[in-house]
Simulated scan of single mutants.
Amino acid sequence: MSELKNLNIAERVELIQQTLDQLYPTTPIPLAHFDAYSLLVAVLLSAQCTDERVNQVTPSLWQLADNPFDMAKVPVETIQAVIRPCGLSPQKSKAISVLSQRLVSEFNGMVPADMEALESLPGVGHKTASVVMSQAFGVPAFPVDTHIHRLAQRWGLTRGKNVVQTEKDLKRLFPRERWNKLHLQIIYYGREHCTARGCNGLICGLCRACFPARKYPKKVHKP
């Protein structure tokens, strides 16, 4: 009986791409939105909140205002009352109000297709800006959330202890033209197959296929 051998990193990268393409040939954005502004606000709201909850809340928010010109005029307290189910409502409501005001005053009410400009807005970190750049403007980016950070470690694609290093490693391993689709594919797989508690690096199909000789659970560094 031949000894099981783990795949090398090039083999793992190829297998991961092939498997995810088969499972997720299309990658709809989980957050409901209708333009760059609504996507920006939805991603901001999704911090420490599920996409499902955000999608339940945003229709009521858009009834208040669905563009930065109108949102800039809505009292912060009114925004907070609507988005409270998403958590962190004091910070998020103020961020939505101020970023809307700044979009009006500095960008003619348009969401800038520029990473540095996006990251300068309140409540908009690197991950949020990356999502908007990739999904609203089609610019290659690789936003790393907790799902991607977890799976990248389980699949031996990074040794990074933080999302910054994980993002650098993934960008180095995968073709630039695949980044936008791949980051969504990995999120879907992490939610459905390689969950935080449902897999420990030994259970899901890709973990087993990439590391058939792995005998012990894979320790994951949280971001």
Rank of each mutant, 00 (worst) to 15 (best):
V132Y: 02
L99W: 04
G156T: 15
K94G: 10
P140S: 15
V98L: 07
D145N: 12
F107I: 02
E116S: 14
S130G: 08
E177D: 15
R178D: 04
L99Q: 04
H183E: 04
K181S: 10
V132E: 00
R178F: 03
A141K: 14
G138S: 08
Q101T: 07
G201Q: 02
R197F: 05
T128S: 10
M133P: 01
V139R: 13
D169E: 09
Q153K: 11
A129M: 12
G160W: 09
H147D: 13
I187H: 01
Y188E: 07
I186M: 05
I96N: 00
K94M: 14
D169A: 10
A136G: 02
F107N: 01
S89H: 15
L88C: 12
L206C: 09
P122Y: 00
L118F: 12
C204P: 03
A141Y: 11
K92F: 09
K161V: 09
K94E: 15
I203N: 04
N180A: 06
G190V: 02
R102T: 06
R154G: 12
V144F: 06
A117C: 13
L173V: 11
S120E: 04
T128F: 04
G190F: 00
L103I: 05
W155I: 07
P90D: 15
A129T: 10
A141W: 08
Q135A: 08
Q165K: 15
V163D: 01
R154H: 11
A141N: 10
G125I: 08
T195Y: 02
V104Q: 03
G125L: 11
I186K: 00
E119W: 07
G109C: 04
F174D: 02
I148F: 03
S97L: 08
